[in-house]
Simulated scan of single mutants.
Amino acid sequence: MPSFDIVSEVNMAEVENAVQNVTREISTRYDFKGSNSSVEVKDEGLTVLADDELKLKQVHEILRGNLSKRGIEPGQLDYGKEEKASGMSVRQRITVKEGIDKETAKKVVKAIKAEKLKVQVAIQGEELRVSGKKRDDLQAAMQFVKNMGLDQPVQFKNFRD
């Protein structure tokens, strides 16, 4: 029986490469000259340190651009609260979302069932397994999920015939 998995994954090696590019760009940009702005990769997320909120927003722009060049969508990032650090500087924690959470998974299952596609959907931890009798039904389900407009980007893997 043909099937595929709906997952939400991030290649952390690409995130680290993007962060290195951001660090390099910050060190060469004129508007960051003499500032104490940095981005670090720490367990399942990023920590952004900037002199003020304006510089923090500029670092966000640079980070988003470098991540999108590396194939990581902005929806994968979950920005935490801005907190005051030493002096006038600002720190922000950014978590990288991986896996489909329960509410999103239930929403996708309910929407596919409401669409009356001829497929079965099973929640398996942080991914969804979609199976059906025909390949065309699975491709219709893929297209439907793409057009749902979910907050978190999803990928389709393990397509088996």
Results as ranks from 00 to 15, higher is better:
Lys113Ala: 08
Met148His: 11
Asn36Tyr: 09
Leu63Arg: 04
Gly71Ser: 08
Gln20Pro: 03
Lys84Arg: 13
Asp78Glu: 15
Val145Met: 04
Gln120Phe: 07
Gln120Asp: 13
Glu127Leu: 11
Lys107Met: 10
Asp78Val: 10
Leu56Glu: 09
Leu128Thr: 10
Asn11Asp: 15
Met88Tyr: 09
Gln20Ala: 14
Glu73Ala: 12
Glu14Pro: 04
Tyr30Leu: 13
Asp137Thr: 04
Lys146Cys: 07
Tyr30Gly: 05
Asn66Phe: 13
Leu77Asn: 05
Ala13Asn: 14
Thr47Asn: 15
Pro2Ser: 01
Leu150Ala: 05
Arg29Ile: 02
Asn21Lys: 14
Lys55Trp: 08
Gly132Trp: 03
Gly99Asn: 09
Gly65His: 12
Phe159Val: 05
Glu127Gly: 00
Val154Asp: 04
Leu138Lys: 00
Val96Ile: 15
Glu83Ala: 13
Lys134Asn: 13
Asp78His: 11
Glu115Asn: 12
Lys42Gln: 15
Val90Asn: 06
Ala105Lys: 03
Met142Gly: 03
Ala122Val: 13
Ile100Asn: 04
Glu16Cys: 05
Gln139Glu: 13
Ala50Ser: 15
Leu150Val: 00
Lys57Tyr: 10
Asp43Trp: 10
Ala85Pro: 03
Ser86Trp: 11
Asp101Trp: 03
Glu16Ile: 08
Gly132Ala: 04
Glu115Cys: 01
Pro74Tyr: 02
Val59His: 07
Glu40Trp: 02
Ala140Pro: 04
Arg29Val: 05
Ile100Cys: 05
